[in-house]
Every structure is written in structure tokens, then in C-alpha cells.
Design a protein around this nucleic acid. Structure first.
Lengths: 221, 221
DNA sequence: GCTATTAGTTAGGACTCCTAAATAATTCAG
DNA sequence: CTGAATTATTTAGGAGTCCTAACTAATAGC
């Protein structure tokens, strides 16, 4: 017998947006602080991190632009700056000689590791969450990211929900209801990945289905 | 009988960080897209929004810098640009003639409203969360923000947890366990505000105590 | 073999963001 | 009540972000 529950739910959304916006700001300003010491801007740091993460595959300028949600020209000159600083190497791609294959130099790799530390301040905050809260929070983030992705606001997120290997809610065990065909074992909610290097994009139709089941599975809650 | 639950919990933190970073990126790129149409950069939009929100009090350049977590010189020239665009007015403060009292012009107010729409894309994502998830998510964000604030990464957040009027967990009713002395009524978790205009900062000691009780209250969970 | 298309760069311009060094006005101490 | 410290803001200078539009260069399609 609650009064206007719909209204309240809608208000929460606004509060959540406010909160996320603040966290965003914190990320940005931390990135500046962490970076200026070593002469790196946030964008440059993100590029190094992106390259470090995808060291297996060939990374092109376009990929960098997608990953950071910036335009190709912007990515191009940030990469040029990093090349001047000897943190990134540009080589012609062997597969397509119009394209570049970007890679980190030794010092680039070193800086990439340190750039991860920019998020230390936010990480400390997240650590305050209880186990239960972390799980719900992560699931919520997965939903938000899926939505952002569908709207084209961010590039393909390498997360379970869109991966060929992932099968949601196939096990009875409520602690580990999902299954990953890549790892070949059951997974709990807390193991959902948002940026998995084994990610293999599922087909359009498959993804939609998978996603619906993932969303539905929780309606019991 | 879980295997290494600590390890898993720690992994979740990393995943959450990844997710928050992506959301951050989405905010940023949406802000650019939304802004360029009307010739506003993200920073300019945020300044307009901040001024609109605090129309009651006198807002100075320093306040703007704090609110956006940028340096005073940066704030100063963004404000100068907005003044040229006739969106913001600069008047000498009556209380202190070194300082400025910033305010929106009529068209500034108009633009400020539209700048709120930048977050539409993220908002759509957050709407996918269930009522339960929204509540947990909001509580989690409150914790993260409190932590960011303590670490000095963001300026004082006008949220319940640090407000004189707020009394956490004073009611038996688990749907509305808190109380707000300003509104003069019990509040549920879903009503926690993260940017309340009635906010009245509590004293240092008071805040710590309040916060501890707020955090503890949920340990039952 | 042309003509798309695609990968990336250049050019040009507005603005962000920083640090360091002014310029004012206020406050405080003696 | 005056000179020194403090506080609010601006200027200066420089690197870099970020955009759009216009260009090379290489691949692909017909």
C-alpha cells in the first residue's frame, strides 16, 4: 500500500543520473591529476589502456576512435602525439595497407599500467559496497551498458550478455545460474564480465534472444 | 561453501569500474553531440546547469570550479566565453567586491534546460532497472559519492547522508526507515536525494556519525 | 579499368585545461 | 589605522581535445 510508487521510481532515476554524472566528473578530474604528473592527458591514457588490453589483435586508429567514442581525426592526432612521445608505434597493417597496426613500445606498456591507477579513487568508493550490493550494481551496469550500446552511444562492449559463449539461466543453482561455453563452466552473477578478452560477438538475433532471457531471468526477483 | 568468495568480490569491483568508466565515456560523448548543435561544449553546458540549479544563492567563479572539479582559471575562461555568448551575466558581488555573482540570462536559462537532455541516453538505460535494482543502485551510488567526497575528488555533494536534517534508521517501518526533519516525514531508500536544494551541511562530527549509522543500518542485509 | 568505398591525415578553429604570475579587494595584527 | 597576509579573479602561455570539411592513398566491386 505505497503512495505513488511509480512517481518515486521515476525520481530515483533522476537521482541515479545525478550520481552517475558526479562519478563521471570524478573520473575525468582524477584522470587529469594522475596524468599531468607524467605529461599524459586523459585521452592519451585511455588510448594506452585500450592498446594494452587488446594486445592480441591488430588495433587500428578507427578502433581507438570507437573505443573512446571520439572522431577518427581526434584519435589520429592523439595517436600522433603518443608516437612523438615514443609510447606508441605505428606500423602499416599487413592485411590492408591503408590501415595501421598500432602497438605499445616498452615505455608505453609501462605507462599503460600506471594509467590504470587513475581510477583508484573511484575503486575505493566501490569497495564500500557489500557483496550483495556489488552483485546488483554490476547487473544494473550490464543493463545500462547494453542499452547504451543499442543506442549507439558506446561501441560494442565485450560483455557476457552479447557473447556467443554465454548462456544465461541454464542451471538450477541460483548461485551460478549462467554458463560460459568458453570457460566451460557455470557462472554466478558476480562473475559477469564487462570487458572480456575471450568475447566473441553473437549474431544479431542471438543477441536479442540472449538478452531477453537475461533480463527476464531476474524478474522473479 | 563457495570457492574463494573474496577473490570474486574483488573481481566484481574491477568489472564495476570498467562499467562506470564506459558510462562516463557515454556521458562525455553525448554531451559533445548534444552541445555542438547549439554551439556549447560539455563544460559550458555543465556550468549553465549548475547555475540553474543554484539560482537561489550567489554563485561565484570559485563555486563553478568546485562544482565541475576544474581549476579556477579554467572556470574563469569558460564563464567569459558564456558571457560573450550572452548566456551568463557577471555582476560584482554585493557582499565582497572582489567576487562575482554569476547569473543566467533569459536565453541562458533556456539553454540550461536543454542541456539536461544530454543525459537522455543514459537515462533510458537506467530505466531498464527494476524497482529493487534502482534502490540498491542508488544506495550504492550514495556510498561511492560519500567516499569520493571524503577523498576530495568531488566537492560537497548535497545529499541526505551529509545533511543536518537527515536521520537514518529511526523508524521501525523498513519501507521508510529514515527521517527528514526538513520535509518533516519518514523517507524510504528510494527517496534518498543526491542533490537536494534544502541541503544543510552537518557538522564534521555529526556527519561521520550519521554516515556510520547509515552504513551500519544495512549490514543486516 | 574505372568508380565507389574505406583508412587515415591535414587544415582550421573554438575551447579545455593546466601552471605561474599578475591585479584587486579584504582581513587581520600590531 | 596601516602594512602584510589572504582571497577572488584574470592574464599569459602552451599543449592538447574535439569538431567539420576537404584531402590522399589503397582496396573492392562491377
Amino acid at each position: 500500500m505505497k503512495e505513488l510508487p511509480m512517481r518515486e521510481d521515476e525520481d530515483i532515476v533522476e537521482h541515479i543520473i545525478t550520481g552517475l554524472a558526479k562519478v563521471s566528473m570524478a573520473f575525468r578530474s582524477q584522470a587529469w591529476e594522475g596524468g599531468t604528473v607524467r605529461g599524459l592527458t586523459p585521452t592519451q591514457g585511455h588510448i594506452l589502456a585500450a592498446l594494452a588490453e587488446r594486445s592480441e589483435r591488430e588495433v587500428r586508429v578507427t578502433d581507438v576512435a570507437d573505443a573512446l567514442a571520439i572522431t577518427v581525426p581526434t584519435a589520429s592526432d592523439a595517436v600522433a602525439t603518443l608516437e612523438q612521445k615514443k609510447l606508441v608505434r605505428k606500423q602499416r597493417s599487413l592485411l590492408d595497407s591503408r590501415a595501421l597496426a598500432l602497438s605499445l613500445t616498452a615505455s608505453g606498456r609501462r605507462e599503460a599500467l600506471r594509467s590504470g591507477g587513475w581510477s583508484e579513487v573511484v575503486r575505493a568508493g566501490v569497495r564500500l559496497l557489500s557483496s550483495e550490493e556489488r552483485r546488483v550494481f554490476l547487473r544494473g551496469l550490464a543493463k545500462v551498458m547494453q542499452s547504451l550500446q543499442e543506442q549507439g552511444a558506446i561501441s560494442t562492449v565485450r560483455m557476457c550478455a552479447g557473447c556467443t559463449y554465454f548462456r544465461p539461466y541454464v542451471h538450477a543453482d541460483s548461485a551460478k545460474p549462467h554458463h560460459c561455453d568458453c570457460l566451460g563452466k557455470p557462472m554466478g552473477e558476480g562473475q559477469l564480465r564487462l570487458d572480456c578478452s575471450d568475447f566473441l560477438p553473437a549474431s544479431e538475433a542471438d543477441r536479442a534472444d540472449r538478452w531477453r532471457r537475461f533480463l527476464d531471468g531476474r524478474c522473479r526477483h
